[in-house]
Lab assay of single mutants.
Amino acid sequence: AEKTGIVNVSSSLNVREGASTSSKVIGSLSGNTKVTIVGEEGAFYKIEYKGSHGYVAKEYIKDIKDE
């Protein structure tokens, strides 16, 4: 049951290796980017990222929809 969301930041949002603010940053997404959410862990969504997965803070994702 995948969902999509939109990155809701003015600059960019860090994509992390794990569901923690201390996890390594593996990339970033600019505002209004559409993401595919494959799961959630605590305050983070697990998303599809560059052929693999990454984690982003839930508070910066809006317009969550079921695909």
Rank of each mutant, 00 (worst) to 15 (best):
Asn8Phe: 05
Thr33Leu: 06
Ser22Phe: 07
Lys34Val: 11
Val15Arg: 00
Thr36Trp: 15
Lys50Met: 15
Gly27Thr: 02
Glu40Leu: 06
Gly27Tyr: 04
Glu48Gly: 05
Ala43Pro: 14
Glu41Val: 12
Asn8Val: 14
Lys50His: 09
Lys46Val: 10
Glu2Pro: 14
Ala19Cys: 04
Ile26Pro: 00
Gly31Phe: 15
Thr36Ile: 15
Gly18Gln: 13
Lys46His: 06
Ser22Arg: 10
Val7Leu: 04
Val35Glu: 00
Val35Trp: 01
Phe44Gln: 02
Ser23Phe: 05
Lys24Asp: 06
Glu59Asn: 06
Lys3Tyr: 04
Val15Leu: 03
Val35Pro: 01
Lys62Ala: 13
Lys46Ser: 03
Lys46Cys: 05
Leu13Ser: 04
Lys46Thr: 03
Lys34Glu: 08
Tyr49Gly: 01
Ile64Lys: 05
Glu67Asp: 11
Val9Lys: 09
Ser52Thr: 12
Val15Ile: 08
Asp63Gln: 15
Lys50Trp: 07
Thr4Cys: 07
Ser10Leu: 11
Lys24Arg: 12
Ser10Asn: 13
Ser20Arg: 06
Ser28Val: 12
Gly51Met: 08
Lys3Thr: 09
Glu17Lys: 07
Lys58Asn: 03
Ser30Asp: 11
Asp63Ile: 15
Val38Trp: 09
Lys34Pro: 08
Arg16Lys: 07
Gly27Cys: 03
Lys24Ala: 13
Arg16Ala: 04
Glu48Gln: 13
Lys62Pro: 03
Ile47Trp: 00
Ala19Glu: 02
Glu67Val: 13
Val38Lys: 05
Thr33His: 09
Asp66Asn: 11
Glu2Gln: 14
Tyr55Cys: 00
Gly39Phe: 04
Phe44Val: 02
Ser22Tyr: 08
Val56Asn: 00
Ser30His: 15
His53Val: 14
Lys24Asn: 10
Leu29Ser: 01
Gly27Trp: 05
Lys50Thr: 05
Gly42Thr: 04
Gly42Ala: 07
Ser11Lys: 11
Val9Phe: 04
Lys62Met: 12
Lys65Met: 13
Tyr45Thr: 02
Ala1Gln: 12
Ile47Ser: 00
Asn32Leu: 10
Lys3His: 09
Lys3Gln: 08
Gly54Glu: 00
Asp63Asn: 11
Ile47Pro: 00
Val35Phe: 03
Thr4Asp: 05
Thr33Ile: 10
Ile6Trp: 08
Glu40Cys: 06
Ile47His: 00
Lys62Gln: 10
Arg16Ser: 07
His53Arg: 04
Leu13Tyr: 03
Gly54Ser: 03
Glu67Pro: 10
Glu48Asp: 14
Thr4Glu: 13
Ser10Thr: 13
Gly54Ile: 01
Asn8Lys: 13
Glu2Asp: 11
Ser12Tyr: 15
Gly39Ala: 08
Glu2Ser: 13
Lys58Gly: 02
Gly5Leu: 04
Thr33Met: 13
Glu48Cys: 08
Lys34Cys: 06
Thr21Lys: 14
Ile6Tyr: 09
Asn8Asp: 09
Gly54Thr: 01
Glu2Leu: 15
Ala43Val: 13
Gly31Thr: 14
His53Lys: 06
Leu29Val: 10
Ser12Val: 10
Lys62Tyr: 13
Ser23Ile: 01
Tyr60Cys: 07
Leu29His: 01
Lys50Cys: 08
Arg16Pro: 00
Ser10Cys: 09
Glu48Ile: 12
Val25Trp: 04
Lys46Asn: 03
Ser22Glu: 15
Ser28Leu: 13
Val9Asn: 08
Gly51Gln: 10
Lys34Gln: 10
Glu67Ile: 14
Asp63Tyr: 11
Val7Thr: 08
Lys34Arg: 14
Val7Ile: 10
His53Thr: 10
Ile47Leu: 02
Ala19Leu: 04
Lys50Leu: 12
Leu29Gly: 00
Ile37Glu: 00
Arg16Trp: 15
Glu41Met: 11
Ile6Asp: 03
Val25Gln: 04
Leu13Phe: 03
Lys62Glu: 09
Val7Ala: 05
Asn14Lys: 15
Ser23Val: 03
Ser20Cys: 06
Ser23Cys: 06
Phe44Cys: 03
Ser12Gly: 13
Ile6Phe: 06
Ala19Trp: 05
Lys34Tyr: 08
Ile61Ser: 01
Glu48Thr: 11
Ser20Gln: 07
Gly5Ile: 04
Leu29Glu: 01
Ser28His: 15
Gly54Tyr: 04
Tyr45Gln: 01
Val25Ser: 05
Gly39Leu: 04
Ser28Pro: 04
Glu2Trp: 05
Glu59Trp: 07
Ser30Thr: 12
Ile47Asp: 00
Val15Asp: 00
Asn14Tyr: 11
Lys58Met: 09
Tyr55Met: 02
Lys46Trp: 07
Asp66Ser: 13
Ala1His: 11
Ile37Gly: 00
Thr33Phe: 06
Lys65Ser: 12
Ser23Leu: 03
Glu2Ala: 14
Lys24Met: 11
Glu67Met: 09
Val9Trp: 03
Gly31Leu: 12
Val56Ala: 04
Glu41Cys: 07
Val7Pro: 03
Val9Ile: 12
Asn32Asp: 11
Asn8Thr: 13
Thr33Lys: 05
Lys62Arg: 13
Glu17Asp: 15
Ser30Leu: 15
Leu29Gln: 02
Ala57Trp: 10
Glu48Arg: 11
Ile61Cys: 02
Asp63Ala: 11
Val35Asp: 00
Ser23Lys: 04
His53Met: 09
Val56Asp: 00
Thr33Glu: 10
Lys24His: 09
Val25Pro: 04
Glu67Gly: 12
Glu41Asp: 12
Ser23Asn: 04
Ser23Ala: 13
Phe44Pro: 00
Phe44His: 03
Asp66Trp: 07
Gly42Gln: 06
Ser11Phe: 09
Val25Cys: 06
Asn14Thr: 13
Val38Met: 08
Ile64Met: 08
Ser28Met: 11
Ile26Gly: 01
Asn14Gln: 12
Asp66Glu: 13
Ala19Thr: 07
Val25Ala: 05
Lys3Gly: 05
Val25Leu: 06
Gly39Cys: 05
Asn14Arg: 10
Ala43Lys: 12
Glu67Ala: 13
Ser22Thr: 14
Glu17Ala: 13
Ser11Trp: 08
Ser22Met: 11
Glu17Ile: 11
Leu13Lys: 02
Ile26Asp: 00
Tyr60Asp: 08
Tyr45His: 04
Thr33Trp: 06
Lys24Ile: 08
Arg16Tyr: 15
Asn8Glu: 09
Gly5Glu: 02
Gly27Arg: 02
Glu2Cys: 10
Lys50Phe: 09
Asn8Ile: 11
Lys50Gly: 14
Val7Met: 03
Lys65Val: 13
Thr33Arg: 06
Val9Ser: 11
Val38Asp: 02
Ile6Thr: 09
Glu40Trp: 07
Val15Thr: 01
Gly27Gln: 02
Ser10Pro: 09
Ser10Ala: 13
Ser30Gln: 14
Lys58Pro: 01
Glu40Ile: 08
Gly51Asn: 11
Tyr45Ser: 02
Thr21Phe: 14
Ser28Phe: 12
Val7Glu: 02
Gly54Phe: 03
Val38Glu: 03
Gly54Ala: 11
Glu40Phe: 06
Lys24Trp: 04
Tyr60Thr: 05
Val38Cys: 05
Gly39Glu: 05
Asp66Lys: 07
Ile64Ala: 08
Ser22Asn: 15
Val35Cys: 04
Lys34Ala: 07
Asn32Val: 05
Ile47Tyr: 00
Lys65Asn: 14
Ser10Phe: 06
Tyr60Lys: 07
Asn8Trp: 05
Ser12Pro: 09
Gly18Ser: 13
Ser20Met: 06
Gly51His: 09
Tyr45Asp: 01
Ser52Pro: 01
Tyr55Asn: 00
Gly39Val: 03
Val38Ile: 14
Ser10Met: 11
Lys58Leu: 03
Val56Trp: 00
Ser23Pro: 01
Ser23Asp: 07
Ile64Gln: 06
Val15Ser: 01
Ser12Phe: 13
Ile6Glu: 04
Ser11Ile: 10
Ala57Ile: 12
Glu59Phe: 07
Glu17Leu: 11
Asp63Met: 14
Ser20Leu: 07
Glu40Gln: 10
Gly54His: 02
Gly31His: 15
Ile64Cys: 06
Glu17Trp: 08
Arg16Asn: 10
Thr21Val: 10
Val38Tyr: 07
Gly31Cys: 06
Ile61His: 01
Glu67Arg: 07
Lys62Cys: 08
Lys50Gln: 13
Gly18Ala: 14
Lys34Leu: 14
Tyr45Ala: 02
Val35Arg: 00
Ala57Gly: 08
Gly42Glu: 07
Leu29Met: 05
Gly42Trp: 04
Ser20Ala: 09
Thr36Cys: 07
Glu41Ile: 11
Val38Phe: 07
Val35Ile: 13
Ile61Arg: 01
Asp66Met: 08
Gly51Lys: 08
Ala1Asp: 11
Val9Asp: 07
Thr36His: 12
Tyr60Ile: 03
Lys34His: 09
Ile26Trp: 02
Ile64Leu: 11
Ser28Asp: 07
Asp63His: 14
Glu17Gln: 14
Ile26Phe: 03
Val7Ser: 04
Lys65Gly: 08
Ser20Phe: 08
Ile64Asn: 06
Ser22Gly: 13
Tyr49Val: 03
Ile64Arg: 04
Gly42Val: 03
Val35Tyr: 02
Asn14Gly: 08
Glu2Lys: 07
Thr21Cys: 07
Tyr55Lys: 00
Val9Leu: 09
Ile61Lys: 01
Gly51Tyr: 07
Glu40Tyr: 06
Ala1Val: 10
Lys3Phe: 06
Val25Phe: 06
Ile47Arg: 00
Ser52Ala: 13
Ile26Thr: 03
Asp63Leu: 13
Ile37Thr: 01
Ala1Trp: 09
Val38Ser: 05
Glu67Tyr: 03
Ser12Ala: 10
Phe44Trp: 14
Ser52Val: 12
Asn32Thr: 06
Ala43Met: 13
Ile26Arg: 03
Leu13Thr: 09
Lys3Arg: 12
Ile37Asp: 00
Asp66Arg: 04
Ser22Gln: 11
Lys50Ser: 09
Ser12Lys: 10
Leu13Asp: 02
Ala57Cys: 06
Lys3Met: 09
